[in-house]
């Protein structure tokens, strides 16, 4: 399961999504996420879901890969949906133990599930096709105005880049440490909560220690490569292309479509 977590897992490629500017992708993600959160109508959410699936298709990521990478969160979503399905929305805290499913709860649960899946789809589509450096560039440009209050946006951007770049490395390291401690008899799934806690500590502490040592080394390496957070040029050229305008136009159409559905179609 550790292997399959998708955070920080940028995949090389040249799909339509890869070719979009990182800013476009972040805007699309924001639009889809906000729309998914704010709307509750079945038809709008279906529109949003279709758009998210379309976005996923454009990123050339196979369904299997998507499912594998998001297995944990999909299971959580299903679980939440099921909980909602079984417990009525107006259930009292003290119940007599009677559960029943109505057409209303089915609809609500289904809507929740669509929201979750849309979020997962759009997040995956963006994360798989946007490298850490592209994300950090967007962050840097967005936070640039903060330099007047002494916050260096390049520092923030670099922190994000490094975090994302090291997530797979740290996960791999965690896996190794878990194996090493398991081999010494550490009980990760034990009735005795103290033993489980100790086992988790036996992984958490070494990871923390190695992270600090890694951070020190990285900081030295950055300094040595003349990083100063000040004036610098940029390797990546971020220019909006025709594709980006088309994508943003489609997003606008989606917003209009959702508003229209909310106003005129009451499903």
């Amino acid at each position: 399961m550790i292997k399959n977590i998708s955070i920080g897992k940028y995949i090389e490629g040249n799909s339509k999504m890869h070719q979009l500017d990182a800013r476009t992708k972040i805007i699309l993600w924001l639009v889809f996420t906000l729309l998914a959160f704010l709307t509750h109508s079945f038809i709008s959410l279906s529109l949003i879901l279709i758009s998210c699936v379309f976005m996923m298709k454009l990123s050339d990521i196979s369904a299997l890969k998507f499912l594998k990478s998001n297995s944990l969160i999909i299971i959580l979503s299903l679980f939440t949906t099921l909980l909602n399905l079984v417990f009525e929305a107006e259930a009292k805290l003290i119940t007599s133990g009677k559960f029943y499913i109505t057409s209303k709860t089915m609809k609500v649960s289904f809507i929740i599930f669509i929201k979750f899946i849309s979020l997962i789809l759009t997040t995956s589509a963006v994360m798989f096709t946007t490298s850490a450096n592209e994300i950090s560039y967007v962050v840097e440009k967005t936070f640039m105005p903060l330099s007047c209050i002494g916050i260096n946006s390049r520092d923030i951007a670099l922190t994000i880049t490094i975090t994302l770049r090291f997530i797979p490395t740290v996960l791999e390291e965690a896996k190794k440490i878990v194996n090493a401690q398991l081999s010494r008899g550490a009980r990760f799934k034990n009735k005795n909560i103290f033993k489980t806690f100790k086992a988790c500590l036996s992984v958490f502490i070494p990871l923390l220690v190695s992270s600090f040592s890694r951070a020190e080394c990285l900081a030295t390496a950055l300094e040595a490569r003349c990083y100063s957070g000040e004036a610098h040029t940029s390797f990546k050229e971020f220019k909006f292309k025709k594709k980006d305008f088309i994508a943003l136009l489609l997003a606008l159409l989606l917003i209009l479509g959702v508003i229209g559905c909310n106003l005129w179609i009451k499903i």
Partner: peptide, 15 residues
Amino acid sequence: IASTIEEEIAFGLEN
């Protein structure tokens, strides 16, 4: 620090 090789080498050049 970077995810791709060219970005990694470019980092120093940007600085």
